[in-house]
Design a protein around this nucleic acid. Sequence first.
DNA 1: AAATGTTTAATTGTGCACAACCTAATAGGA
DNA 2: TCCTATTAGGTTGTGCACAATTAAACATTT
Lengths: 150, 150
Amino acid sequence: MNDPNIPLCNPLLKLDNQLCFSVYALSRLITKTYQPLLDTLGVTYPQYLVLLLLWEHESLTVKELGEKLLLDSGTLTPLLKRMEQRGWLSRRRATHDERSVIATLQPAGRALEQQAQEIPVQLGNCLDMTIEQISDLRQQLKPIISQLNK
Amino acid sequence: MNDPNIPLCNPLLKLDNQLCFSVYALSRLITKTYQPLLDTLGVTYPQYLVLLLLWEHESLTVKELGEKLLLDSGTLTPLLKRMEQRGWLSRRRATHDERSVIATLQPAGRALEQQAQEIPVQLGNCLDMTIEQISDLRQQLKPIISQLNK
DNA sequence: AAATGTTTAATTGTGCACAACCTAATAGGA
DNA sequence: TCCTATTAGGTTGTGCACAATTAAACATTT
């Protein structure tokens, strides 16, 4: 009994029933929808997220970026180096604590903000949802994210 | 006017207001939550998704896997080759159409189904949501996915 | 049958993501 | 002070994702 060659037909093991797959697929679809919009700025989606934060805060340490984006230095360091090479930001050690690296927006990075103004609007059109629906869904995801981020 | 060095403070360009980031972050958090569970099977999350489909359908072409998972051959081919090397599935050209490659579950892959039985339950515990909440959220994401997948 | 167009995978190259590990700087005690 | 532990980034290696290109098999048209 329990022959390993017989299917078990556990409904919980069906792709269609998995919230996880829906989130995974939606995330990639959203990135793909952003792509042509971000191509006009020459940035990738994760780079765009870094820019969103720097447009708002001007200067942030790698640690702060990591906390806000839930990314570690293994992802951020090479990503920030590419952005530095393009002149969008600078990277330097903090003088008061040589362990910290501060990323600071450069004029070329600030200039991209102008071109990005219409991106959220255009993406909203692609989603075919109202502002309320979008905001509502975001509020639903919030507690799940903080639950998993413990 | 429109000095590129002055912040614009467009609220739509704030990370906190972006549904997109929530989905992106949640997707990575879910994968990270699966990780220790999948480690006991020795599979990655995308490989687990392929197994879910093969446990149900036994045999699928690369094209069919791609349609169901929304992944292209550039992702699937190397992934399936790794799974083939581990003996979980076989890859062979279809005799009636030599363009198609059929992935077929092998006994070693079927055996993993036994060990996977508890994974959805354990993940449900981590999410701290009821079956109804999970199902409800999945229903909400469905139309957004099909909208973007056009 | 020959020419043309389409479908299906595979390949190549870039950029994340992340685990595991390493190093230097700092903080906190004994 | 010295010793220990902690913190912040960086490095390395593996595995996705995906765009762009290629090639072979099949379908269609003439």
